[in-house]
Design a binder for these strands. Structure first.
Lengths: 106, 106
DNA sequence: TTCGTATTTAACCATATGGTAAATTACAGC
DNA sequence: GCTGTAATTTACCATATGGTTAAATACGAA
């Protein structure tokens, strides 16, 4: 999952404020430039960012569409978890009602 | 992340319907029992489930509280992404206005 | 005590992930 | 063409993850 690594989430957060070069993204990250390049490739393959060329710099920018998808994904997940919690809570309440009959716990 | 693996999410979904033994959780999963045991340990360490004893069975059940936390987490994440997208959209619109002045694209 | 079922442990393996250092490429300016 | 800066590629390494099989453990029932 492209969003799994904190360094990558950090880069995306930084890019939310606007275009940045590899060096700029690396600066707060306490890791070598090759490592940053690798993370950028992950983000690029996931189409979360795009890159361009400016002399010897290779600036990165956020891709708008997939992040909207990510946002929608979070919203969906939230709904899924909510419905699971609903079912769970019903289950737990029915257990409370039953509690006197046969307590399996030791 | 305990919620990362589809098998584990499947187990949690199953447990949302009520207690289940290791064998019952394994049945739909096309993997060996030892593999299932490992996944269960991950879930147990993350305190998403708890286990008990019933003869030779070791039934599992969902832990309520942390899943509520997970739900809250999703909600938070959603808000974070939304605010990022707001910022991003403002940025993109300001670029549109600028578009005529200096087109870096080739 | 022995047998069958449920589960775990131990030992092992393949692959993915995240990092490094050193060499290489790309480019601007002198 | 040479030099300095930005970034990437290459080769390598350590650890995490997810799986396997075979053996061990736990328990109820015969």
């Amino acid at each position: 999952m492209a969003l799994a690594h904190p360094a990558r989430r950090g880069m995306l957060a930084r890019l939310g404020k606007g275009e940045a070069t590899v060096g700029e993204l690396a600066q707060p990250l306490d890791m070598s430039l090759p490592a940053v390049t690798k993370h950028l490739k992950v983000l690029e393959r996931a189409m979360l960012i795009s890159r361009s060329k400016n002399a010897q710099w290779r600036p990165c920018q956020l891709e708008e569409a997939p992040l909207k998808t990510a946002s929608r994904w979070f919203e969906q997940q939230r709904k899924v978890w909510e419905s699971r919690l609903d079912r769970l809570e019903k289950h737990l309440h029915s257990m409370e009602k039953d509690a006197g009959s046969s307590r399996g716990r030791e």
